[in-house]
């Protein structure tokens, strides 16, 4: 059992056991980030669940489209589809009407375990599975409550399927038509989750939500953003980590029309690079390529292969950290 499924089942996890599981999970990322967990998650015993308001994650439009906020960046690993699937399954939403958006920066979209808004460490499904199930289940409960109130019937006599609430005596109402009323219902503290045997989307092949925009050029990547007043910068980097300019002749660079500014910026390994700022890429590139930089290499690490190999030989003779001991 992984930490994720323990968490999902609401079992209390002893801190030592959670640490033990984390250390063998994929990536040093999990281990190092554990040290930065908010205090609430580090308390011995049960982790305090965070309340996530459904209206920050689900927007039901009058035309029936349902927009789900995804609290992770999609970069080909599939969360743009999988997280909405989880929510839509518990919500009994019509998958053909689902759209997904990358959530904006906000507290409510932080990773429930790490406490920061991020993607990585193989944590997307592990940490947000339970979260998105609950969001879907609560949204469904609110829609049912709205229908039940309108029809004056018990909620238990209603069932849901493909974005429709069905009541006794053949009544039915679309989610789109119930959305306003549902928004005014109180958010339940808990809502029943489906049995895995009842999943309609989870575990099944569904239409992906990111494919088409990636095939027609409409999806915006970072480089495609165009913000008001935005400039473009290109950087002349040191040829070796840790080097810095001894001198920079930027006369030719500044003579390229449209260059806004040229200045030094810190670079890796305590080196220094030179940035060129302009309105357009080609301007910045021409200017950057015309920089005459005399690099000072005196502070570079000066790695020596034979010295490093000797160091590794010595290290190999010492005991290392035990990662896993098989019984």
């Amino acid at each position: 059992m992984t930490a994720a499924t323990n968490f999902a089942n609401g079992l209390s996890i002893s801190r030592r056991r959670f640490l033990g599981v984390s250390a063998t999970a994929a990536g040093g990322l999990i281990v190092s980030l554990y040290l930065n967990l908010p205090l609430a998650a580090q308390e011995a015993g049960q982790a305090k669940p965070r309340v996530y308001p459904p209206d920050a994650f689900v927007h039901i439009k009058p035309d029936g489209k349902i927009v789900i906020q995804v609290n992770r960046l999609e970069f080909g690993q599939g969360v743009q589809t999988s997280l909405p699937m989880i929510l839509a399954d518990e919500m009994d939403a019509d998958w053909s009407q689902i759209e997904a958006e990358l959530a904006p920066a906000a507290d409510v979209y932080k990773d429930p375990l790490y406490g920061i808004q991020m993607v990585g460490g193989s944590g997307s499904i592990a940490h947000s599975f339970q979260q998105y199930r609950e969001l879907g289940a609560k949204t469904r409960a609110m829609l049912v409550a709205a229908a039940a109130e309108q029809w004056k019937v018990p909620a238990s006599q209603c069932r849901t399927e493909a974005s429709v609430v069905h009541g006794p005596a053949g009544r039915s109402a679309k989610y789109a038509d119930l959305a306003d009323a549902a928004a005014h219902m109180p958010v339940p503290e808990t809502a029943p989750l489906k049995k895995p045997a009842d999943f309609r989307l989870i575990g099944k092949k569904v239409r992906r939500l990111d494919s088409r925009p990636k095939c027609d050029g409409s999806l915006k990547f970072g480089l495609d953003l165009d913000l008001p007043g935005m400039k473009v910068a290109l950087v002349a980097r040191p040829p070796i980590f840790g080097a810095s300019p001894r001198s920079v002749d930027d006369k030719a660079a500044r003579s390229v029309p449209g260059v806004a500014d040229i200045f030094e910026i810190p670079s890796v390994s305590r080196g220094t690079a030179v940035a060129v700022v302009a309105d357009k890429f080609w301007t910045a590139k021409q200017a950057r390529d015309r920089l005459q930089i005399d690099w000072d290499l005196s502070k570079v690490e000066g790695a020596d292969s034979s010295q490093l190999r000797e160091k590794y030989r010595q290290l190999a003779r010492t005991p290392g950290n035990c990662c896993h001991r098989s019984r």
Binding site: G76, R208, S211, K214, C215, F221
Partner: peptide, 28 residues
């Protein structure tokens, strides 16, 4: 460009095949 290739029947067929086969990952 990619924004206009759907005007071509071959372009449309390729885009549809790309979606059906789940070709893309990051998509860049």
């Amino acid at each position: 460009t990619i924004e206009g290739i759907a005007q071509d029947p071959v372009g449309r067929a390729v885009q549809d095949a790309w979606v059906s086969a789940d070709v893309v990952q990051c998509g860049y």
